[in-house]
């Protein structure tokens, strides 16, 4: 779960005051306004995160990054809590380890984390035993979770642990939504909304364990405000949102990340000049992304850059195409 810290250029302001505090017994000096997480990373202390991304406003919902602040009643989310002078922070206390282990177990026992990068290692590191909550309940039927009524649920089945399992939603040619893999990190909602794209095609609907990412009335994406920029896919930490080619290749067993190379180029479509990272497997483009740390895109693209690269290579769509000279 290692993520590079990105510094985003901001307009020049009055210099921020330095402040000193302690992390795991080590004295740290950071600028005023620095989060505990950022401070930890400057001194090489690794803290796992799931809902945090440098390019999005922290929602501190996953609680994986919690740390103990001396004198505080409860643990603090390091991704959003700013450091204060004299603060004494512990990142590996027994309370912290317990909370992180349980958060990971809660997720692993209720969500399919099989395509979450680094998750297997994290579950092992924290000695998680998600199976102790019982065997996972069979998947809900399509639409069942969308129809839930806030404040009501059926009595639990003592033989199973409830999950968010449900069928994959494949309602367009560009990307799929597999909400059985959704940890409700809010990143896609933020990327679709005011943080990046301003399309507002999706939001969190429902409440409690039935809270879910949804379009209005849970309509299929083609009927929603979605513009297929795919910026939600770019920020999804679990693979719940996945471009169709990757999804199909994974289903066919041909997706091989070790065999892939990444080549950066500039998107050929318009004059903005977004950096495009082409993921290539067997001399075929299988995915297009943009680097998170690119100052122009912040990882974002539009529908053309993210999905419109089939013309480069032979394929069903190229068969009928004619060349300019032809």
């Amino acid at each position: 779960m290692t993520t590079t810290l990105i510094s985003i250029e901001r307009p020049t302001r009055a210099p921020k005051k330095p402040l000193a505090f302690t992390i795991d017994g080590r004295a740290v000096t950071v600028e005023e306004g620095t989060t505990i997480l950022a401070a930890c990373r400057t001194i090489g202390i690794e803290i796992p995160t799931l809902c945090f991304l440098e390019t999005l406003r922290p929602v501190n919902a996953c609680r994986l990054c919690v740390v103990e602040v001396e004198g505080a009643r409860v643990l603090a989310p390091s991704c959003s809590r700013t450091a204060e002078a004299g603060m004494v922070v512990y990142t590996k206390s027994a309370r912290v380890i317990h909370a992180r282990r349980l958060v990971l177990e809660f997720l692993a026992s209720s969500v399919d984390l099989s395509t979450t990068p680094g998750m297997a290692e994290l579950l092992a590191e924290y000695d998680c035993k998600p199976e102790r909550y019982g065997p996972p309940k069979p998947h809900a039927l399509a639409g069942e979770r969308d129809a839930a009524i806030a404040g009501h649920h059926a009595a639990p089945d003592p033989d199973f642990a409830a999950t968010v399992g449900q069928p994959v939603m494949v309602d367009n040619d560009l990307y799929v939504r597999d909400y059985a893999k959704c940890v409700l990190c809010y990143k896609c909602v933020e990327a679709c909304g005011a943080d990046h794209q301003n399309s507002f095609a999706i939001a969190v609907a429902g409440r409690g364990f039935n809270a879910r990412i949804s379009t209005e009335m849970a309509v299929p994406l083609p009927d929603s405000a979605c513009v297929y920029c795919g910026n939600c896919i770019a920020v999804c930490p679990t693979g719940a949102l996945m471009a169709k080619p990757e999804f199909d290749m994974r289903a066919a067993g041909s997706w091989n990340i070790e065999a892939q190379t990444t080549t950066d180029t500039i998107c050929p479509y318009c004059g903005v000049g977004c950096t495009l990272s082409l993921h290539v497997q067997d001399n075929t483009i299988v995915k297009a992304t943009s680097p998170l740390e690119n100052s122009i895109t912040l990882g974002n693209l539009c529908v053309k850059g993210r999905f419109g690269w089939q013309y480069v290579q032979p394929g069903p769509s190229a068969d009928s195409a004619t060349t300019r000279d032809g």
């Binding site: 929602v59 501190n60 919902a61 996953c62 609680r63 994986l64 909370a99 349980l102 958060v103 809660f106 997720l107 026992s109 209720s110 940890v183 409700l184 969190v204 429902g206 409440r207 409690g208 364990f209 039935n210 809270a211």
Partner: peptide, 8 residues
Amino acid sequence: GQCVPCRV
């Protein structure tokens, strides 16, 4: 349903 500890 916002945070994992409470939601799950």
